[in-house]
Design a protein around this nucleic acid. Structure first.
Lengths: 325, 325
DNA sequence: CATATTTTTTTACAAATGTAAATTTGAAAG
DNA sequence: CTTTCAAATTTACATTTGTAAAAAAATATG
C-alpha cells in the first residue's frame, strides 16, 4: 500500500497527497485519467481521493452570496423596506410551474446559509431560532471557521414531528461556523405562567436569557396564522388560543410570539408561558436576519418588516415578488 | 465589494440566476440535466452558466493549503531550518520518472499561491520579486479579496525572453488579492553605479524603496549560479561578472544580489548598478516566503536558509528531500 | 501459520459532462 | 419591414466521470 516510497507513513502525508491531487484537478484542470497516469494508480482511486478531499474539507467549493443580494428585485426589497440587504433564491424558471415546497425550501436554505456567512462577523453573539425553515438552513449551511463566535438558542426546546430536536438547529449552525453553542435548557412552553416565571429565574436559564438581550445577530423565521401553523402543530399553542390571537389581529408568529400587521407584539396566551427571547431583544440586535419561504408567509413577513424587526431578509423569488408588489 | 450598482439592472439578475444555478449544482448536488429541466433550458446552457460562474468568481473552488504544511517532510524542513511553515508540492509518484520542469513548476506555483493566501493578512504590505518562478505563481494564484493590502514590486523592471513584463508579477498578484499595487518605475540594472544612485533618489522611486524597507511579507525566489542563470539571461549581469561572483563564493541570487553559502551578501558587480530591495530589508520583513523548484536550486536555497532570509518555504518534493538530507 | 475481516484498489459499465457546429434569437442598420 | 451581424441556445457526439461489484492488500484473529 505505501507506494509513497519515502519512509514514514504519517497521516499528514496522505493529506498532502490528497491536497496535491485536488490541486491538479481543480486548480490545474487536469483530467482524472491524466492524474491517475502521473501518480500511477487507477482513475477510480483518484475519484475516491477527490471525494475524500471534499468530504474532509480540504477542497472547498463556495458560491458567492453577494451576487444574490445584488439583483434588481433584492434592491427593490431593500429600498421599499429599508433593509440592509436582501437575498433572493430562485429555483426554477417562471412559467415552469410552481416549485414544490421542499424544492424551494432547500434552495432558500442554501442561500440563507450564505447570507449567514455574510452577516456574521468574528466575535459576534448570534441568536438562532428553530423551526422547519431554520432546520433546513442549519443542514444546508456550508462550513466556514469564524473566530470567537457564540451561537445561542433563542427559543426553548420542544419535541415536534416537523422538527425532531430543536436544539439541533443552533448546534448545527454553531458547528458549521466553528462557534461555541449555548443552548436554552428549558421547554419552549410550560403548563403555567408561574412555572415559566420560576424557570426564567433559574441561574442557567437566566444567564442564557441575558445573553439573548445582547445579540449582535438574530436569525429567525416567521410562521403564519393558518390553523396548521407550526406553533400549534408543535403543541406550543392550543388551536383555540391561536384563534383568539387571530381575532385580536395576529398576522405572524416570531419566536412563539404573535405579531399584528404593524409588527407589534400581541401578548395573548400562551405568551407568558413561553421561555424564549423577547421580540424587543431581537430588535436590539444590530443585524436581524429573517428567512422565509412560500407565498403563504407573505402577510407574516410583511408584519415583521413593518415592525422593524428585520434588517436582512432572505426569501424565495415568488415571495419576493409578492412583497414588492 | 462590487455591488452591481448601476442602471442596467439586468446584469445583477443574471448573476443571481448564475449564482442560484451554481448553488443547485455545487451545493445541492443536482445534476446538470436536473437543473436544465427545472429551469426549462437545455443542459448545455447550464454548462455555460456554470463555466461563467467559475470564470467570474461567483463560484470559487479552493484547496486548503494548510494540509500541505502538515506533512512529515514539511515538519522536517521546519525543524531543521527553524521555519515558521513549509509547503511541499508533489506532482507525481516516485518511480514514475522525473516530472518535467514545467510540470513541476506549475504544480509548485499552485501550492505557492495558497501559501501566499495563508501568509498574507489584512492590512499587510507585501513585497513581490519577479522571475520565472514568481511569474508562474502570479498566474496560478487563486482570487481572494483581502482588505487593505499593498503589493510592492521589489526589483526594478527588465525585458527578458523568459519574463516578458516584470511588473506583471506584482500587478497580477495584487489583482488576485484585490490589493493596490505599487510598481518600481526603474530598470533593474543601470549602466553605471552613479546613474543608479541618482535614480534611487528620484522621489517616486525613493518612496517605493522606502516602502520596501517596511514590508510585512516578502515573496521571492532564488536563482542558482549556473552560467545560464536568469540574472545573466535577462541581461542584468554580464557572464564575466557572474564568473567573478562565483569565484568569490556566490551560491545563490536573490533579488539580483549574490549570496554566499552562509547567506551573506556579496557586493560584486553589478550590485551597485541595481535598483531593487536590499537583502537586509527583506530580512526585516516579518514573513519571508521563498519559493523554489528544481534540484539545481538546492545549493541556492540552502544559502538562503543559512542566512536567515527565509521564514516560510515553498518547494517541490524532490527539492525538499534534498534539503532534509 | 492459516484464516477471517477489514480496508483499499481495480475493472467494467452506466451516467454525467464538455464541446463544436448548427440553429435560433435579438438587436442595430439600411 | 427586411437584412445583417453578434450573442445566446440547442443538438449531437466524444470524452470524462461516478459507481457498482470483484480482486487484492493489509490487518486482525484463532
Amino acid at each position: 500500500m505505501p507506494r509513497d516510497g519515502s519512509a514514514s507513513g504519517k497521516s499528514g502525508d496522505k493529506d498532502r497527497i490528497l491536497s496535491n491531487v485536488a490541486l491538479l484537478y481543480y486548480g490545474e484542470g487536469l483530467t482524472q485519467s491524466e492524474i491517475a497516469k502521473r501518480m500511477d494508480v487507477s482513475r477510480a482511486t483518484i475519484v475516491n481521493m477527490l471525494r475524500e478531499g471534499r468530504e474532509r474539507g480540504i477542497v472547498e467549493i463556495r458560491v458567492d452570496g453577494a451576487v444574490l443580494a445584488a439583483s434588481t428585485i433584492s434592491r427593490q426589497l431593500c429600498s421599499k423596506f429599508g433593509l440592509a440587504d436582501a437575498y433572493v433564491s430562485r429555483s426554477r424558471a417562471e412559467g415552469t410551474g410552481p416549485a414544490t415546497r421542499s424544492e424551494s425550501l432547500a434552495q432558500l436554505a442554501r442561500v440563507a446559509g450564505m447570507a449567514i456567512l455574510d452577516v456574521v462577523e468574528d466575535g459576534n453573539t448570534v441568536g438562532v431560532a428553530w423551526g422547519e425553515t431554520i432546520k433546513a438552513v442549519s443542514e444546508a449551511m456550508p462550513f466556514e471557521r469564524a473566530k470567537g463566535v457564540e451561537v445561542c438558542q433563542m427559543i426553548g426546546s420542544m419535541v415536534s414531528d416537523r422538527v425532531p430536536a430543536s436544539e439541533d438547529c443552533a448546534i448545527k449552525i454553531a458547528n458549521r461556523l466553528g462557534a461555541v453553542c449555548f443552548t436554552l435548557h428549558a421547554p419552549a412552553v410550560l403548563s403555567s405562567a408561574a412555572l415559566a416565571e420560576t424557570l426564567r429565574t433559574e441561574p442557567t436559564i437566566a444567564a442564557q436569557l441575558q445573553r439573548l438581550e445582547q445579540l449582535d445577530v438574530a436569525i429567525f423565521s416567521v410562521g403564519n396564522t393558518a390553523p396548521d401553523t407550526h406553533l400549534v402543530a408543535a403543541g406550543i399553542a392550543k388551536p383555540e388560543e391561536l384563534t383568539a390571537a387571530v381575532s385580536a389581529g395576529a398576522k405572524g408568529i416570531v419566536c412563539c410570539r404573535y405579531l399584528d400587521a404593524a409588527g407589534h407584539k400581541i401578548s395573548l396566551a400562551p405568551d407568558d408561558q413561553i421561555v424564549a427571547v423577547d421580540i424587543d431583544h431581537i430588535k436590539n440586535a444590530r443585524k436581524r436576519l429573517l428567512i422565509a419561504s412560500g407565498d403563504d408567509r407573505a402577510e407574516a413577513v410583511l408584519a415583521c418588516l413593518s415592525g422593524g424587526i428585520v434588517s436582512h431578509l432572505c426569501v424565495d423569488e415568488p415571495l419576493a415578488n409578492l412583497l414588492v408588489s
